[in-house]
Simulated scan of single mutants.
Amino acid sequence: MINIRLPDSLGCTVASTGVILSLIKSECFDEIHVFARHPELVSHIPGIILHDVDNHSQIDLDLREYTARRPHNSKPYRASYLHMLEMAEASFGLTLPIIIPTIHLSVADNSFAIKELSKYKKPVIWLQSKTTSRNRDWSAENWLKLMERLSISFDFIDLSNTEFTLLQSLAITKHSFAGVCLDSFLVHGSAAVGAKNVIVLIGSSRSECMTYPGQKIIYKKSACIAQPCGMHGYYAGCKKEHEHLFSMNNCLHRNIFACMNKIEISHVEEQIQKLFATTLK
């Protein structure tokens, strides 16, 4: 029997599914107890025993601790779920298979998305326009202008502004034509359900650490000496020599966010048009 504590953030909870699935495949443990703040994201996994995080128990593997590895600066650069897998291997003395984070949606969630998307006449592009940390955001004005420029050809659903459940939102990403998101939950979640044509806007993050194969990345180098810093709000991920510059802030430029401001509307519009042209061939 083993007890695993999952990370608290939504995106990292999704990433941790790769570790759970790998441990199940290893068949080394008769019981896998999982303590999760967002149990709905792992409840689809058969064979695990789910607990609320407030049900205290002896923890054998605490995946919240992967941030101490400073993944944005740990070479070779690799995704968060691989750091978590390495932690599991070290904790249990095993060599584990690499399994991509995966979420299997229910028939009800898929049906919901298909019905919701049928309300629109044009191909739908989902958006995630907000994160939990302002230095990873793109301006509201940019989002509005992007939708205006593309409104002739596409309809939009901003999943940051809906009341869908987490799994319903993931189902929307799976069944939409494309999506545009920031470094947040839906980067991980959309990959875990096999969403197509996902465009990720990043500035403070290192793409090797938080994106997935097949996703289109828009990253523009700014004049910021700390870019990419990996400062995510819930942990400090910058290089140690830059720590004194941040003074407890997520961005050393305070309210300017130089890295995200380098991404222009035209950069995103061009990528969407390329994806659309490809589907017409």
Rank of each mutant, 00 (worst) to 15 (best):
N142Y: 11
N142A: 14
K145F: 13
L146Y: 01
L146V: 12
M147C: 14
E148H: 12
E148N: 11
E148S: 12
R149G: 02
L150A: 05
L150W: 03
I152E: 10
I152N: 06
I152M: 03
S153C: 13
S153D: 15
F154S: 03
D155Y: 01
D155Q: 00
F156K: 10
F156M: 08
I157Q: 00
S160E: 02
N161E: 15
N161P: 00
T162L: 06
E163A: 15
T165Y: 06
L166E: 05
L166I: 14
L167S: 11
L167K: 15
L167R: 15
L167Q: 12
Q168H: 05
Q168K: 07
S169Y: 01
A171S: 15
A171Y: 07
A171I: 13
A171R: 07
I172P: 01
K174P: 00
K174L: 15
K174M: 11
K174I: 13
H175N: 13
H175W: 09
S176A: 15
S176N: 08
S176C: 15
S176Y: 08
F177M: 10
A178Y: 09
A178H: 10
A178D: 13
A178I: 13
G179P: 02
G179N: 07
G179R: 07
V180F: 07
V180M: 07
V180C: 06
V180W: 06
L182I: 14
S184E: 05
S184K: 04
S184Y: 04
F185T: 04
L186P: 02
L186K: 02
L186N: 09
L186E: 02
V187I: 15
H188Q: 03
H188Y: 07
H188P: 01
G189A: 08
S190E: 10
A191E: 08
A191R: 01
V193P: 01
V193H: 01
G194T: 14
A195T: 09
A195E: 09
K196R: 14
K196T: 11
N197K: 05
V198M: 13
V198D: 00
I199L: 11
L201Q: 05
L201M: 11
L201G: 06
L201E: 08
I202T: 13
I202Q: 02
G203S: 11
G203W: 04
G203E: 09
G203K: 04
G203Q: 07
S204L: 09
S204V: 12
S204T: 13
S204E: 10
S205T: 13
S205P: 00
S205V: 07
R206H: 14
R206D: 09
S207T: 04
S207N: 08
S207Q: 10
E208G: 05
C209P: 00
M210F: 04
M210C: 15
T211P: 00
T211N: 02
T211C: 04
T211I: 10
T211F: 05
Y212E: 07
P213A: 13
P213E: 15
Q215C: 11
Q215V: 12
K216S: 13
K216T: 15
I217P: 03
I218F: 00
I218G: 00
Y219L: 11
Y219P: 00
